[in-house]
Amino acid sequence: MRYIVTGGAGFIGSNLVDTLAQHHDVVIIDNLATGRRVNIEHLLDHPRVTFIEGSITDLDLLMDTFPGADGIFHQAAIPSVPRSVKDPLASNEANVTGTVSVLVAAKDCGVPAVVAPHA
């Protein structure tokens, strides 16, 4: 099976990738805005893991990456309240527009499942 993990360089996303990569192919999409490369450094040479440094707001990137995926674990976000107060437009772009982009691309590419955390 092939899974996409958005925000896969974050704490939760990287641990999810660790688990999934034991038995499945995994593509990490992360722009490293809040995720950290150190969280996935040990996975970069893993034969089942592909890392794409990019944004979930890039619909073309998502449309190129999602075909053939069996599921998407959507972990990408800017989770900081202080950052959202300081720059609400950037937080909205990542958290709202990014999530809509993931959902649209998943639908258009025929991905059967998107799992996202409940806020």
Score class of each variant (00 low, 15 high):
H23R: 15
H46Q: 06
S14G: 09
F51Q: 09
D60N: 13
P82N: 10
V104T: 15
P88D: 08
D70R: 15
A76S: 06
A90H: 13
V49Y: 05
V104M: 11
G68L: 12
T97Y: 10
L61W: 07
E53P: 05
F66H: 07
T19P: 11
L61S: 08
R83Y: 14
G71V: 01
S14D: 07
S91N: 11
L16Y: 11
T50E: 14
G35Y: 00
D18H: 05
F66I: 09
T34Y: 11
P47M: 05
V27R: 04
R48Y: 12
L89D: 12
L32H: 00
G54C: 00
V96C: 05
N31W: 08
T99F: 07
H74E: 09
K107N: 07
A105C: 12
A90L: 13
G13H: 01
Q22D: 09
I12D: 04
L62Q: 00
N95S: 08
V49R: 03
L103V: 11
P47F: 04
E53F: 04
L32S: 02
L89W: 14
L89S: 07
L59V: 15
F66R: 04
R48L: 13
I52Y: 02
D64Y: 10
V102M: 04
Q22N: 06
G68D: 15
V81T: 14
G54S: 02
A77C: 11
S101N: 15
L61R: 07
L103H: 10
R48G: 02
I52R: 04
D64R: 14
T99M: 15
R83G: 14
T19L: 15
P67S: 03
L43S: 01
A94P: 01
G54T: 02
V104G: 07
M63K: 12
I52E: 06
M63Q: 14
A76W: 02
T99G: 02
A106G: 10
V102K: 03
L20V: 07
V100A: 08
D25Y: 08
D30S: 05
P82H: 00
Q75H: 13
A94N: 08
V81F: 14
Q75W: 05
S14Y: 03
G110K: 00
E41Q: 15
E41V: 11
L62V: 06
D25Q: 12
